[in-house]
Amino acid sequence: MIEIDDKIVSADLLRECFACDLSQCRGICCVEGNAGAPLEAEELGELEAEYEHYKPCMTSEGIEAIERQGFAVLDEEGDLTTPLVRDAECAYACREEGITLCAIEKAWREGRTPFRKPVSCHLYPIRLVKFSNGAVGLNYHRWEVCASARTCGRRLGLPVYKSLREPIVRRFGEEFYKALEAAEAYLKSQN
């Protein structure tokens, strides 16, 4: 673990390799699982306000799930998460050429909404943990459905944090990303 300001970072983010490979996984991370993606409280307003912009990209099942369950649900631990279709697929999913994608991000790419997608989805496979003292932990979540991403990341020599530069900067800022680069350089110098 590495401490950077009020963040506790798993060294795996600097050592392990990862690069999404949609041609192999087909977006299965949006389909598999036992709970929706974590949501931050401030994202609820954006999800609701932008609904009409990304709704046309959603599946009919996803639209029905949102209209029945709402824009977010509480999981077993009481945390906000995205609603699911049939207890599996994210309600915000869409399909394009046999690949499951985020309907919100599709609308964002088409210029229909300024909201890209929930930050937890953008950061994946980094999972955030909030501590009682206000610190935030950044952990590397290993999931079998992402085996192709680990293979692709190793082939490219791309550490987890480097493949996630954009969402890390979105959530924590450029200075934090630069601190991760410095931490990686330090770890390499110690080996």
Rank of each mutant, 00 (worst) to 15 (best):
E3Y: 08
K7I: 14
I8A: 02
S10G: 09
L14D: 02
E16Y: 04
E16T: 10
F18Q: 01
C20K: 06
S23P: 11
C30A: 05
E32Y: 05
A35Q: 09
A37W: 02
P38Y: 03
E43G: 04
L44F: 12
E50A: 14
H53S: 15
M58C: 14
T59D: 11
T59M: 15
S60D: 15
A65F: 06
I66Q: 02
R68N: 14
Q69T: 12
V73T: 12
E77I: 00
D79N: 12
L80E: 03
T81M: 03
T82A: 13
A88D: 09
C90F: 07
C90W: 04
A93C: 08
G98H: 12
L101P: 00
L101R: 08
K106L: 08
W108S: 11
R112L: 15
T113M: 04
P118M: 05
V119S: 02
P125K: 06
R127L: 09
F131W: 11
S132K: 15
N133L: 13
G134L: 09
V136C: 08
L138G: 00
C146M: 07
S148W: 08
R150K: 13
G153N: 07
L156I: 08
G157L: 04
P159S: 10
V160L: 05
E175D: 12
A179W: 01
Y186Q: 13
S189W: 05
